[in-house]
Simulated scan of single mutants.
Amino acid sequence: MAAKTGRSGVATLINGAGFLLAVLLVLHIVFVLTGFAAENGLAQSVAQAAEPLVLFFPGLVHAKSEVLQVLLDYGLAAAFWVLLCGVLARVFG
């Protein structure tokens, strides 16, 4: 019997969803780090979409700087989503 070498469509879809969630969180980090105008519609939309995705990470690690706090909160959440979706893709793939 031949071994299964490719990934299933479900695994690819789960990995893709995790990647898109992480990209959204990293995009919010980039907007904060670069000082992108918060009044901008794109920055507001990204911030509103990223807010529920950080789950329990805000305040998990305390930092003195607001920028560093955003980097930690949203960066940890992005890593969490990538890892979680990677594990789920492996289970269901």
Rank of each mutant, 00 (worst) to 15 (best):
T12D: 03
E51S: 15
C85K: 04
G86N: 06
Q48F: 15
A78S: 05
L71F: 15
L25N: 02
A47V: 05
L72N: 10
V26E: 01
A78H: 01
F80T: 08
A37M: 06
S45L: 15
G59F: 04
L20E: 03
L71P: 08
L72W: 01
G41A: 14
L27K: 06
N40V: 00
L72D: 02
M1P: 05
A43M: 04
A17V: 15
V87P: 08
V30F: 11
K4F: 01
G35E: 02
H28W: 14
L33G: 02
G86S: 09
L24Q: 05
E66V: 14
L88Y: 00
A17N: 06
A2P: 15
L88D: 00
V46H: 09
V91R: 07
T5D: 00
Q44S: 03
V26I: 15
Q44T: 04
M1Q: 07
C85D: 06
S65T: 13
P58A: 14
A79N: 05
F19D: 05
V54G: 10
F19Y: 03
L88T: 01
A37R: 10
A49F: 01
C85W: 09
G59R: 08
G35I: 08
L83S: 02
V26N: 08
V54A: 12
E66Y: 10
L33P: 00
T34Q: 08
V10P: 06
L84A: 13
A49K: 03
E66L: 12
Q48W: 10
Y74S: 12
I14D: 00
A17W: 03
L83K: 03
L42E: 12
H28S: 11
D73T: 14
G75R: 04
T34D: 07
K64F: 12
R90T: 00
L76C: 05
F80H: 01
E39I: 10
N15F: 07
V46P: 07
L55I: 15
F36T: 12
A78F: 11
W81L: 05
K64G: 15
K4P: 02
V67L: 14
L20K: 05
V67Y: 13
N40I: 07
L20T: 02
L84D: 00
F31Q: 14
L88S: 04
T34P: 03
F57L: 13
G16Q: 01
T5G: 05
D73S: 14
N15E: 13
L60Y: 05
V61T: 04
V91T: 02
E39H: 09
E51Q: 15
G16F: 06
E51I: 14
L60T: 07
V61F: 11
P52S: 02
L27V: 09
L13F: 13
L88P: 02
V82P: 10
H62P: 11
S45P: 04
S8R: 05
V32Y: 05
L33D: 03
Q69F: 01
V61M: 14
L71W: 12
F31S: 12
G16W: 06
A77T: 10
V30M: 01
G75Q: 11
L84G: 01
L21K: 01
L76Q: 06
V87W: 02
L21R: 09
V87M: 03
S45K: 11
F19L: 15
A79C: 10
A37D: 15
